[in-house]
Nucleic acid binder design. Structure first.
Lengths: 120, 120
DNA sequence: GCTTGACCTGGAGCGCGCTCCAGGGTGTTT
DNA sequence: AAACACCCTGGAGCGCGCTCCAGGTCAAGC
């Protein structure tokens, strides 16, 4: 019997909802920590790798770019300097809140148009 | 004296905050209604053109794509069929609300990280 | 008449975030 | 041993939303 831990590429793709190509891309780009390999060079995703990918995709869905996500990963995993980390996190947070404002404004525009056309 | 109405390209760029290239691109792509030209082929933006561009940039800032914006313009300016128009507007609205949810989730993630690191 | 400057057109180029593919290896099944 | 499924690497390609550029026109100022 083989003693492998974690899940395979295909299983990780299913678990995260990402494509295998995207998972590979994310590792190349440093968005996920270094992931274990088995004897033949295949990836083995541990539970916390999968969890981390969940965090990353959540932030990505909110519009963060690859460079931001890479920095996020570096600062939180490799334990960067605390000041830089907090500053970065708060900066991104502010940006998202700003984005939420833009979103609300757009919803209002659509609501206005809907109301305008709806009342005729 | 020349009798021109509206504002020039450069003035429109200043007024809207977009580059001249972007304004030209938006017209090519049909995101703004057809805009008047003067005798020598230069654009003359009327007040409502500028206002419309404001609406378009608002929606764009919320993440709508060019194809959506084109359709939006077509449906609202060229008076498309009412059913299609309302359906489209509501569909986009729903999507933006969904986006707002993703944004809120991401803000929560960042808040959690900030709290975690802040308390050490 | 000549320069200057704002503007025009058509088309190429770019950064992002994937996505696809060729060519090859490994490990289980039959 | 042959077939198959699964995975690997490196690199090219793609759609989007601009952005830049060459080459030219037109109106005003000197």
């Amino acid at each position: 019997m083989t003693v492998t831990q974690g899940i395979s590429m295909g299983e990780a793709a299913t678990a995260t909802g990402l494509s295998e190509d995207t998972l590979r891309y994310y590792e190349r780009e440093g968005l996920v920590g270094p992931i274990d390999r088995d004897a033949s060079g295949h990836w083995r995703y541990a539970d916390n790798d999968v969890a981390w990918i969940g965090v990353v995709t959540c932030l990505r869905d909110a519009g963060l770019g690859i460079a931001d996500l890479r920095r996020f990963t570096r600062l939180l995993r490799a334990d960067g300097e605390a000041g830089e980390r907090t500053e970065f996190l708060m900066g991104r947070r502010d940006e998202l809140v700003r984005q939420a404002g833009a979103l609300a404004a757009a919803v209002k525009v659509l609501d206005d148009k809907i109301a305008y056309y709806g009342s005729r």
